[in-house]
Design a binder for these strands. Structure first.
Length: 281
DNA sequence: ATTTCATCCTGGAGGC
DNA sequence: TGCCTCCAGGATGAAA
């Protein structure tokens, strides 16, 4: 499930493939995944992108942004299973290749999403220097500061709520980019129980949590992200971070710190992994 | 204001 | 081997 480190790696891989290239044609086989101002007239939107130059491939939180010379833009929310794969134009496309970008030459980049939770937002005009305001105009959810670069001050400011700290960290409007995996990992690293009300964390715990979130995301980016089920970069390479997970997906295995079996609980409707000894409430 | 719940989806896992 | 049921969860929007 792509969280920020996975999307960052996709952006890193896609950039040299797409940037400064000219689009030949973009086709969409699953119009229901299209959202935003351009979705109403999707045929016209996609048609206008033929022969357009791709000027930017960027990321904000878990969103991947592709910008074109004429200021049209597409923003991908990958949902659970969204990914991109290179397709050489020979042979059948993947069953779930919902959106296909054909470049000049035989190269194609396909957006593939089996579960179809992913969305592609179409913007007729997007200011890539400050996309946040445009995203909001289009009805995309508001985003808090990006988790890898959030300042200590801003982080402390979001903790002033009685909500469970896990719920808070998953709330993209407060802090953007974390998902279930990296929240569980960050809370374990800090020794915090996920149900702890955010405003009861003392100064030291809050600082340590802030530090661990940034460090874990940074390491996950460096290791190419985490592959649980589907994630892969456009070349089909899997992330290498899953070997370094300490609690996520390690139900009943022993804690790397104290050997206590890792427990799986449900919090905020999400599978939540903790060491019951290291993360007391 | 906050939290829970249903919804969207398919493929993989586990039970029998 | 195969059929069935259950479940994963990012984001959203309604309901409690």
């Amino acid at each position: 499930m792509p969280e920020l480190p996975e999307v960052e790696n996709i952006a890193i891989s896609l950039r040299p493939i797409l940037e400064d290239q000219t689009v030949q044609r973009i086709t969409c086989r699953a119009p229901q995944i299209l959202k935003g101002p351009g979705a109403q007239r999707r045929s016209a939107f996609l048609k206008a992108l033929s022969h357009q130059h791709i000027t930017a491939v960027t990321r904000r939180a878990k969103r991947l942004i592709i910008g074109f010379q004429n200021e049209q833009a597409m923003i991908f929310q990958l949902g659970m299973t969204g990914k991109f794969l290179l397709h050489d134009n020979e042979g059948a496309a993947h069953k779930h290749a919902h959106l296909q970008i054909a470049l000049n030459g035989s190269q194609e980049v396909h957006f593939i999403d089996a579960r179809r939770f992913g969305r592609v937002w179409l913007f007729n005009r997007l200011d890539l220097r400050n996309p946040d305001t445009d995203m909001l105009d289009a009805g995309m959810g508001p985003l808090g500061p990006d988790a890898p670069t959030i300042s200590r001050k801003a982080f402390l400011a979001i903790l002033t709520t009685t909500r469970p700290v896990k719920t808070l960290l998953l709330d993209q409007s407060r802090i953007a980019g974390l998902g279930n995996i990296y929240v569980d990992e960050s809370l374990f690293a800090t020794g915090i129980h996920p149900a702890t009300p955010a405003n009861t964390l003392d100064q030291e715990k809050a600082h340590t949590l802030h530090k661990h979130i940034k460090a874990i995301l940074k390491r996950a980016i460096r290791y190419g992200g985490t592959t649980i089920m589907d994630f892969a970069n456009p070349y089909g390479d899997m992330g290498r971070f899953h070997k370094r997970l300490k609690v996520y997906g390690r139900h009943r295995q022993s804690c790397t710190k104290c050997n206590t079996p890792i427990k799986r609980i449900v919090l905020a409707g999400r599978g939540t992994h903790i060491c019951p000894a290291c993360q007391s409430q």
